[in-house]
Design a protein around this nucleic acid. Structure first.
Lengths: 273, 273
DNA sequence: CGTTTGGTTGACACGGGTCAAAAGGGGTGG
DNA sequence: CCACCCCTTTTGACCCGTGTCAACCAAACG
C-alpha cells in the first residue's frame, strides 16, 4: 500500500468510488480520510465504511494476523465469520477434484470476505492469504444481527455485495467471450484500478503480489499460455509484468482489448509467437 | 409455472430455500404460501418476500406486461428501476462490439432484476424478455429509500444479491475450468433446480423457454458446438433436450460432470462424435 | 552448494471455432 | 393445400487457439 498525497479525482479512482459517494444535506460529496486503509478519501474505498466499522466493533477492532499461504476458510466448512481485510491480499477460489482451481476473486485491503456461502450449505469457496494479512473478523451471526438493527449498515453491505456481483458478472463476460489477451487485460486492468485507487498518485509501476500461476487460474488459462500471452503483450508494447511489477504502457489499447472485443484481430496485434 | 400440491421437502427445493428460511420464536421453520409466484411455501422462492412486497407497494403492486423479445433496459442506460418478476423469463446479457453477447443470468419469476449497475455509470448490462413477462417495478431511488428505512428489507435485498453473487461465481468456475459438457450440465441443472423448486412435484420433463443459441451464449460456446455437445450427452443417456423440453435421465452423472471435473475423461463418456 | 519454485520455450495434440450447406419445422399468403 | 420463407438444428470439413508434455533456465532458499 502506498500513501496518497493528493485528493483522488482521476477516473480510475472514480470507477470504484461510485458506490460509496456520500452526500451532505446540501448535496455535496462528503470526503473524509478512511480509517481502514490509507486512502485519503473513504469514498474511493471498496469497503464497509469506518462508521460501520465502529458499529461492528464498539470496543475496538479484533485484528488477527495470518501468514502468507494460510487458508482462511475451506469450501464445505460451516459458515463462520465475515472479515474486513485491513492489510494484505487474499484470494477466493473454487477447488476441483483433480487439484485445479478457479480463482474467483482477489481480495484487497478494505474488501469484505467470508460471505461466500450460507448457513445451510456452508462455504462454497476457499480463501487463502496471498501475502501476510491482517483481518478484522466478526461472527456472521453477530454481523447479521448488527445489520438487522441498522439499515445503513445493511445497505452498505448490500452495496458491497452488489459491487462484487457486478465484478463477477464482468468476469463471466471475460471468460465466456474473450480470448487469452482479453482475459489477461481485464484482470490486470482491474487490479491496477483497485491498487491505484488506494494511492493518491498514479505511479508508473505498481506492485502486485501475484505470479503467472495466479493469473492463469483466475483467467482459466494454463500458466504456460499466460506466459506466452504476456510475452505477446510485452512485445507489442502493451504492458510490462515482471516479478509482480506491473507497468501499463498503452492503457487505451489495453482497455480496448479488455472491454471491447479482442477476438476480432486488432490490426496486427496477434500472431507474434 | 406449475402448481404445487405437496409441501416441498426434496433437496432440489431445499437448495434454493436456504436463504429464505424463517424461524418462529421457538425455532421452527415458518411456512406459508407465496403471494408472488405459485409456490406453496415462500421459503422456496428466490425473491424478496411477500411482506417486503407489501412494503414496497403499499397501494398495491404496479404490474406491467412486456412482450417476448422486448428490451427491459440497455447497457449504458441510466440506472432506473428495480423489478420483481411475477411471470415469464428474462435474460441479462453483456453486449460486445461485434454483436456477440454473453448471457450473464436467466431471471425467473420471483427473481429481482434491475440492480445490474449503479447511479454513476448506469446499467452495466442489458435485459431482455425471453417470454412475455409481468414485471413489478419500483424506482431505484424509492427502493433504496425504503430499504434504508427497513433493515429487514435491506437484509433481504443483501441476501438476494449474495445469492446472485454465489451463482455468478459458480458460473465463473464453470466457464474457467470446465469443457463443453460440464458447462452445459451446469446450466441445465441450475435451470432445472430453479424450475422444479416452483412446482410441488418433480415432473419427468420440464419446459424451458430457451433454445440452443441461448445455451451457447450463456456457456461461452457457439451454437454449433452446443448442438454437438447436446448430441453427445443424448447419446450417452445423460439427458434429452428438444424444443425446450428438458428431461434429465442420469442426474447423478450429470451432477458429477457439472460439479466435479469434466475435463478428466469419465471412463468412455467422451469421444462419441 | 543442491533443491525448489516460477518463468520460458518448443513440439505436438485436441477441443472448439468457423464456414458452409442442408434438413427440419412453423408460420403465412396465395 | 401447397409454396415459400424464416429460424433453429444438424452435419461435415477444416483451422486455430490453447492445453499438454517435457526440457531447461534463473532466482530464491536452506
Amino acid at each position: 500500500m502506498e500513501k496518497g498525497t493528493t485528493p483522488i479525482t482521476r477516473e480510475s479512482g472514480a470507477l470504484h468510488a461510485t458506490a460509496f459517494l456520500r452526500l451532505d444535506s446540501s448535496g455535496n460529496v462528503l470526503r473524509s480520510p478512511c480509517e481502514l486503509c490509507t486512502a485519503r478519501d473513504y469514498s474511493v474505498c471498496r469497503h464497509i465504511t469506518g462508521k460501520d466499522f465502529e458499529q461492528l466493533f464498539p470496543h475496538g477492532p479484533h485484528v488477527q494476523i495470518r501468514k502468507a499461504g494460510t487458508t482462511i476458510f475451506l469450501q464445505g466448512e460451516p459458515f463462520g465469520s465475515v472479515f474486513i481485510v485491513q492489510n494484505g491480499w487474499l484470494l477466493v477460489h473454487k477447488l476441483f477434484e483433480d487439484g485445479r482451481r478457479q480463482i474467483i476473486r482477489f481480495v484487497l485491503p478494505g474488501d469484505l470476505i467470508g460471505f461466500e456461502g450460507n448457513e445451510v450449505e456452508g462455504m462454497s469457496y476457499s480463501a487463502e492469504a496471498i501475502t501476510d494479512v491482517a483481518l478484522c473478523g466478526i461472527r456472521y451471526s453477530l454481523f447479521f444481527k448488527t445489520c438487522a438493527a441498522s439499515p445503513q449498515l445493511a445497505m452498505n453491505f448490500a452495496t458491497t455485495v452488489t459491487r462484487e456481483a457486478l465484478a463477477a458478472w464482468n468476469h463471466v463476460g471475460a471468460l465466456g467471450q474473450q480470448r487469452a489477451q482479453g482475459r489477461v487485460a481485464n484482470l490486470l486492468l482491474d487490479l491496477h484500478h483497485r491498487v491505484v485507487a488506494r494511492c493518491g498518485t498514479e505511479p508508473a509501476a505498481i506492485q502486485l503480489p501475484i505470479n503467472q500461476i495466479h493469473i492463469a487460474s483466475a483467467t482459466g488459462l494454463t500458466s504456460v499460455h499466460v506466459c506466452r500471452t504476456l510475452k505477446q503483450m510485452r512485445q507489442v508494447g502493451l504492458l510490462e509484468f515482471r516479478k509482480g511489477q506491473l507497468v501499463l504502457l498503452d492503457t487505451e489499447r489495453l482497455a480496448e482489448i479488455a472491454q471491447l472485443d479482442p477476438a476480432v484481430p486488432l490490426d496486427g496485434l496477434q500472431k507474434m509467437n
